[in-house]
């Protein structure tokens, strides 16, 4: 499980550009909880993900994973516990390396890397099995360079790479935003499947409200660096886009002015 307490992040403190990206965030995710995160541009969603992954250190506050305080750990050490998919399909894979080599690197994520061959026969079989579950035919292209794949294929591969080692925490930051609608739908479906299959504790940022409602068993809304809404269980199942927008207006006393969010 994931435990965040009193997390604050301020960028450019004491300058005219000062920005309180996160203010006193407290959030606990139980094992297997799948939380979708929505909020307008600049609300602090990506910053929250970066604080969890360790690519950003909070000014104050504690991050615990499985009751272990990981706040001082650098990103590469923390990624033993964390699988991550980025928004940019180019970001999650190494383009000049082959599909099987990319999978081999992901396979080594929670193990110690050694001077032994990365892609063995046995592992290749394993990779093929996993790729099969994507239904994209990638299992027949193990030796293709990843740079040759389409954005959707790359993102599906990134998702597989982030999840098949069953991380304690899965972080998804708008990982379908750069894809066309049909590809986005495919990745959304794969996400639901894989999270369920491995029972992963997941934090997923999205601008697509429908996606946020369809996926997961808990939803949080962020604004100006704070969590302003947190619904789960039946209450979440009963939510609609209408209700979400009304809720935002009630809490903030203003319209949620964000085309992407409203249209999504």
């Amino acid at each position: 499980m994931l435990y965040l307490s009193d997390i604050s992040v301020t960028f450019n403190e004491d300058t005219p550009d000062e920005k309180k990206a996160l203010q006193d965030i407290n959030l606990t995710l139980e094992q297997g909880e799948f939380v979708t995160v929505i909020g307008s541009n600049g609300a602090g969603k990506s910053t929250l993900m970066n604080v969890v992954s360790g690519s950003l250190k909070p000014d104050i506050g504690t991050v615990k994973i499985n009751n272990k305080d990981v706040t001082p750990l650098p990103e590469f050490k923390r990624s033993n516990y964390i699988g991550r998919v980025f928004q940019d399909p180019m970001a999650g894979t190494a383009p000049s390396m082959t599909i099987e080599e990319n999978l081999a690197m992901a396979y080594a994520r929670n193990k110690k890397r050694r001077f032994r061959i990365g892609v063995t026969k046995k592992r290749r079989e394993l990779f093929r099995e996993y790729l099969n579950t994507l239904h994209l035919g990638l299992e027949d292209r193990l030796n293709a360079k990843v740079g040759m794949l389409s954005g959707g294929e790359r993102q599906a591969l990134s998702l597989l790479m982030a999840t098949f080692t069953e991380p304690n925490i899965l972080l998804l930051d708008e990982h379908t935003a750069a894809l066309d609608p049909s590809r986005a739908e495919l990745i959304t479906k794969l996400t639901g499947d894989v999270v369920e299959k491995f029972h992963l504790t997941t934090l997923m940022v999205t601008h697509n409200m429908q996606q946020a409602l369809d996926l997961g068993n808990r939803l949080i809304m962020m604004d100006k660096g704070q969590i302003i809404l947190d619904v789960s269980g039946e209450e979440k199942q009963d939510l609609t886009i209408e209700k979400l927008l009304q809720e935002f207006q009630r809490i903030r006393g203003e319209q949620l002015v964000n085309d992407r969010a409203v249209l999504g």
């Binding site: 992954s53 690519s55 980025f86 190494a94 383009p95 690197m105 080594a108």
Partner: peptide, 18 residues
């Protein structure tokens, strides 16, 4: 492999605990 990925996509291989 991790060495090659460092030259190819550093951010990615760091998120894979290298």
């Amino acid at each position: 492999l991790a060495l090659r990925a460092t030259g190819d996509n550093e951010k990615m291989i760091r998120s894979l605990s290298a």
